[in-house]
Structures are given as C-alpha cells and as structure tokens.
C-alpha cells in the first residue's frame, strides 16, 4: 500500500483551475445549445419515436411507421408538408403545408404527428 503525499488531501490550485474550466466549458455549451434551440422546429412523432428537425433546413424525411407504411415529409422554405403516403385516407397528403406555431399535420392510420414550434404565431383567432 503506497502512502499518499499529505498535499493530496487539501484543495490545490489545480483543482480550482479545473473547476473553473469545467464551469466555463458548461457555460459555453449551454449558450451554444440555447442558440440552436431558439430556431423554429418541426417535431415528428411516429408511434413512440420522436424526432426534432429545424424548420429552416430543407430536407425530405421518409418516416416508416410500426405497421409497415410510410410517409414522406418535406421541409422546404420554412414550411412542412406530407408529399406522399401509403395510408388509406390520404388526409395528411391533402393537408395544406404548415409553418406557424402549433400548426400540425396528423396521419391517424400511421400514428404520425407533425407539430411546428415556431416564433411565428398563428394570427387566426387572435
């Protein structure tokens, strides 16, 4: 058993620097994350799975549902819509593109929910 130096028990200068470094790394990370989070988001819930995308990045997402079907969700020009789906009623495909806060598209047969979280509020009913 090796004996420790007595200096190992008391707070050293290195400890304080370490704690300061950790706190500043955390602060920077928190700032970066908050900046990223502030953007407008699209939340796609398929059954139990939940994914968040940025509303401002154009992309096409193919969402497979548990029963084997699919929905092709398109995010473009700050709007979201369902381009194609193999569900029975095609209500999601016929839904107009959504872009404002709390607007959503739902595909009941595939248990798919598309929600928009945006700084742009829906001015209808206000």
């Amino acid at each position: 058993m090796s004996l420790q130096k007595s200096s190992d028990y008391n707070l050293k200068k290195g400890d304080l620097i370490l704690i300061a470094v950790i706190l500043s790394i955390t602060g920077i990370a928190a700032l970066l994350i908050m900046q990223q989070k502030r953007g407008d988001q699209v939340i796609i819930t398929s059954g139990e799975a939940k994914e968040t995308y940025s509303l401002n990045e154009s992309r096409t997402i193919r969402v497979s549902c548990e029963s084997g079907g699919y929905n092709t969700v398109v995010i473009r020009n700050g709007m979201v819509w369902v381009e194609e789906a193999d569900c029975k009623n095609q209500i999601c495909v016929n839904h107009k593109p959504v872009s404002k806060n709390h607007e959503s598209i739902v595909c009941i047969p595939h248990k798919l929910f598309i929600d928009v979280k945006s700084s742009r509020n829906n001015d209808i009913d206000n």
């Binding site: 190992d8 028990y9 008391n10 707070l11 050293k12 200068k13 290195g14 400890d15 370490l18 704690i19």
Partner: peptide
C-alpha cells in the same frame, strides 16, 4: 497537480 477533490470532480 490535482488533489483528491480535483480527481473526483
């Protein structure tokens, strides 16, 4: 350069 406390952190 760290004490026991620093290593724990």
């Amino acid at each position: 350069c760290f004490s026991v406390i620093g290593v724990s952190v």
